[in-house]
Design a protein around this nucleic acid. Sequence first.
DNA 1: CTGTTAGCGCATTCAA
DNA 2: TTGAATGCGCTAACAG
Lengths: 300, 300
Amino acid sequence: MTARLKDVAELAQVSIRTVSNVVNDYPHVSDHVRRRVTEAIQQLDYRPNLAARALRSGRSGLLALVAPFPPGLAEHVISQAASRKMRVVIVPQFLALPIDAALLCADVLPAGTLDAYLASGTPLVLLGEAPDRRCDHVAFAPAGAAVAHLLSIGRQRIAAVGAHPGESLHRAGWSVSAEYVRTTAGRRPVEGYQAARALLEHRPDAIFCDDDRLALGVIRAVTDAGLRVPDDVAVVGVGDSDEGRYARPSLTTVAADPADIARQALDLTEARLARPSAEPARVVVPHVVLPRESTRGSAR
Amino acid sequence: MTARLKDVAELAQVSIRTVSNVVNDYPHVSDHVRRRVTEAIQQLDYRPNLAARALRSGRSGLLALVAPFPPGLAEHVISQAASRKMRVVIVPQFLALPIDAALLCADVLPAGTLDAYLASGTPLVLLGEAPDRRCDHVAFAPAGAAVAHLLSIGRQRIAAVGAHPGESLHRAGWSVSAEYVRTTAGRRPVEGYQAARALLEHRPDAIFCDDDRLALGVIRAVTDAGLRVPDDVAVVGVGDSDEGRYARPSLTTVAADPADIARQALDLTEARLARPSAEPARVVVPHVVLPRESTRGSAR
DNA sequence: CTGTTAGCGCATTCAA
DNA sequence: TTGAATGCGCTAACAG
């Protein structure tokens, strides 16, 4: 049988309340008592029942990252959340967990899901480009920087692949005709591959992908078509993934500091939890282009 | 104010018990009543409080996948779990969540963590090679198939990179000297890259990596060293990742059917939950080599 | 087939 | 600074 607060209290000869105080790091416990309680906890291998705690307190201390969530970013969110006494879970959909808040990548949300999530009443922080006035938002719009980089290396016929490539480019002040745009539902390489095959018929000299994994498929499609990257077609991704860095050619990518994104997202989350009815906030995180072989010529 | 069972019961003019029955799909509810209750639920936007449910029932219906967990496998576990009325969360560490069971990739566990997890009393299912007699286990040992494949294409000086490369090869009946073995803590491409740089001094003609992501770094290291893949050095990974499939050269990999692994793991989980004190079980899932360019010559 | 009710383990209000 | 007692929302045992 698993130990309860009551068992610890009996062993330590104190009340339940005192044990609770110790467990939750309340200040007003005498050192003597605290030690006795701590020992009892050890001895009984007491672990708080989180379901009970969540029920009673109305808070679970859990922050959900809704998949798909970039692993490189998740890493930072997890480590920073720990120092803020929040624990992180990654959930496949917005499943009914007793969570305090959720982080979502706005750009890959299927239509309509955001409404459903909002209806749940759970505080939401959106990451990415698509703006939504109804919730907090860490904004990150890489298309502009990507296009600027491609223009700077002399590319003219810039195509785009991703969730909302037309809108992204448009916001970046760059308009392209429809045949230079391919929308993908997900961000797997296979989707990039297929999109690129279609795109290549129109002879772009550069392809911007709103995710590195898409870009890896794009590179393969370009080279399979007998074209060279970057000589014939330059490719830019987003996110600075490990795989892109070690691909051949290595992938030029647009990225923000993931620690920065994580910090902003957690700041917004904490602020929201402290003041649930505050106006939705929005912060913009800066990003940089990391030029690699896919836009500047192979190392050999 | 969020609606409770009681509110629904009042609106639907039935008892709390009946509402609970409807919510939990108990059979013995008349259609008429069921409809009234369902409408009340809709009208009040009632959502069960999962903390309360977990506290009361002692079960959360949650299966945790402990990260790092291969995304391609997680996908199958998630979809299959849904049809078994289990929900899945991915947790960064074995954090104190009210979970019913956890799936762990055995080969990447830091030493000592398994003991800690076992001590928690949570049912555990291990996936991978490293055997542990204390818990259920879906066994998968790709090294043998990888080595056989490399031998079949005439390779002799086979090196290995991964979590326990020496042991893996040894179990596969293939012994290598220490300079052909590099152990990595994680499975990121950078670790494969560094391991391969060291390995290349000893002129292997093949490198087996116990994970595709490692292998991508290895390929880059080999080509950066001015050697060709596969002509000079063949490379084999494990896991059939999307990135490996679209890399250049595309990555030969050893993989089991992820749907099969997921099914076995969930079968073991369900059996364990049904009979917590049963003897630990072990199932072996078959795997196949998927030959691609990294062992058979580039497409062009 | 449906109503009534007792706790699950904990945080917390009110006393002391 | 600590103790006793209440109830969070729900499931399930018991009753009808």
